[in-house]
């Protein structure tokens, strides 16, 4: 099947930057394997005094997007301190490439893993110690550990099994681990690590901050739950502390709608502001 690659992906595939190995590298990160179909070896040179990555090179076995993601990664981390570099997430790599097809997101995850491995190698954190953190292998087809799964699911706020396979490959082989993946996914969806911190711990909100917090709360916490029951809501207006929504799908006209709106209002009051007033606009 022909992939719809961005111009930047093509550019970094056909003219990759920083191919090879840094001589006398200070840190090396090797991830993936030939059996899995992609592998990346990242070497970095680090200035001991400033912690700045002065050079980075890669060697990659893999498809077009794996090579492009590796090339982009080296460009993104050169000149950064180790701590700054570690802030580069897989999503950042994908974004810098002008996006990756969903099925290819695991290529950006591989880049991020190689970076971590190279920094750990430089800092003397042994792969064994690191492996312990990673926990047991859940997907045996692609050797994906529980630690990696939890990390990637949380960092990218993955919401479906398909997402997990696209980002980590787990579940893409024999499928025997699907049940365990479901459990991890369920845990993530219930924990909702994206829950915004309650108001108590926050500075008073500006108008703009309040609007974006309300939107975030509705999008990440409320709508997914309504959508499970084939319902949804639309945000109609935010005027100061007055929030207006419209219920759609199964939620519109649902006999439990009163309970639902009460629950939404409670959430808004808890997270955003105790003085929030929720209004439901009825369909004409």
């Amino acid at each position: 099947m022909a992939w719809n690659y961005s111009e930047l992906v093509k550019q970094h595939f056909f003219q990759p930057k920083n191919v090879g190995r840094v001589e006398n590298a200070d840190g090396t990160g090797d991830v993936g394997s030939i059996a899995c179909g992609d592998a990346l070896s990242l070497t970095i040179a680090v200035d001991k005094n400033t912690d700045i990555i002065t050079d980075a090179k890669f060697q990659t076995f893999g498809c077009g997007s794996a090579i492009a993601a590796s090339s982009m990664l080296t460009e993104m981390i050169k000149g950064k301190t180790l701590d700054e570099a570690l802030k580069v997430s897989n999503a950042d790599i994908a974004k810098a490439l002008g996006g990756l097809p969903p099925e290819k997101m695991h290529c950006s995850v591989m880049g991020r893993e190689a970076l971590e491995a190279a920094v750990n190698n430089y800092r003397g954190i042994t792969p064994e110690a690191h492996d312990e953190e990673e926990g047991r292998v859940i997907c045996t087809c692609f050797g994906v550990t529980e630690g990696k799964l939890r990390h990637v699911i949380a960092e990218n706020d993955l919401r479906t099994l398909e997402d997990i396979t696209n980002y980590t490959k787990a579940g893409g082989g024999c499928g025997a681990c699907i049940d365990e993946l479901e459990i991890l996914l369920e845990e993530h969806l219930q924990q909702k690590p994206h829950t915004p911190t309650p108001t108590a711990a926050r500075q008073p909100l500006t108008n703009l901050q309040r609007i974006s917090l309300i939107q975030e709360l509705l999008d990440h916490e409320v709508r997914p739950i309504l959508q499970e029951d084939a319902g949804d809501l639309e945000l109609v207006d935010i005027d100061g502390l007055r929030v207006t929504i419209r219920m759609v799908g199964q939620c519109s006209g649902c006999r439990a709608a009163g309970l639902t709106t009460k629950w939404i209002e409670d959430k808004l009051r808890e997270i955003v502001d105790p003085a929030i007033e929720l209004h439901v606009k009825e369909d004409l």
């Binding site: 099947m1 992939w3 595939f13 056909f14 030939i34 179909g37 992609d38 076995f61 893999g62 498809c63 077009g64 794996a66 090579i67």
Partner: peptide, 25 residues
């Protein structure tokens, strides 16, 4: 030591249509 899709992309650049049994394809 090389991956099928990467070869196909490069072949495509020089006008050659082929296919591959690699995972990515």
């Amino acid at each position: 030591f090389v991956e099928g899709e990467a070869m196909l992309l490069m072949l495509d650049q020089v006008g050659i249509c082929a296919s591959s049994g690699s995972a990515c394809t």
